[in-house]
Amino acid sequence: MPAEAPTADHAVIDCAELVVRYGPLTAVDRLDLLLRAGEVVALLGPNGAGKTSTVESLEGYRRPASGRIRVLGLDPLADHRALMPRIGVMLQRGGVYPVLGPRRVLRLFSAYYDRPRDVEELLELVSLDAVAMTPWRRLSGGEQQRLSLALALVGQPEVVFLDEPTAGVDPEGRRAIRKVVADLAAAGVGVLLTTHELDEAERMAHRVVIVRSGRVVASGTPTELATTGAGESVSFVAPPGLDVDDLGARIGAAVSEAEPGRYRVDAPATPQLTATLASWLAERDATMTDLRSGRTLEEVYLDAVGGTGAGTGAGPGDGIAGTER
């Protein structure tokens, strides 16, 4: 869980009304995104939501159909040469000479930049010193991902784009990547990452932007997202198969069993409700193992990408306006 929100108020990515089309298909549909220095933002969404198209537009790989993009105040296409030395990119997969090992390819990339990071230090940072001479094609999936990450950092970038950084990485590697991302943010680097894994978004990002069909459907800090609509709902875990209609009648609100054993009450969390709920369960000798006001990020996410659209607005104090259209 990120320790704190970013302090710097300097926007390193400012993207408004971005539209990306591939022929008749609209991959990104009027997407707004703001990222400040020292901030980690996760673009979260199912496959095909437009995450990669968004990131690749910001990196200068795509020409948007319309919209305005500024990365470090520059246009990624028109100011390509000025921008490239200042950003770090991790593509979704590959992108490395198959016959070169981590040390050789990091040395090569370090020659592209004016003030590169020390190669040996980077190898250690991503724990590749033991396989520094192993050709890329013989590295494991996790090692390849960590090398891609190191390559994104070699030029001391001010903004880093990480497309699915933890895909195919084992838990230890994930922890290493999370640490690197946290250190980058602490050093004032802006980090935009994409993922379809809720857990990773929640652990790494200060702010989560949920996209579906090329649009932002919800955004905010993980806490804000989870407590969106917290005043109106309570969820708890108890033995499956309870009589929700009877409970609903007692409480005076709709109760549903979202999945076996996980219940949701559409009412504000009041001491009265908690007491009523507890006594109703006690009468049935049912033990409650979890009680929370609001929803899990997973519920928010599924709600948002499932397209039901209810209660998925931006959280308070969020930098993105107008996420519901």
Binding site: V89, Y112, Y113, G155
Partner: peptide
């Protein structure tokens, strides 16, 4: 051709190499 297929050329596109 293989560098293009492996995404190497694409990756180099976002470096200052040019």
């Amino acid at each position: 051709g293989f560098e293009r297929g492996y995404g190497v050329l694409k990756r180099l596109g976002s470096t200052p190499l040019g």
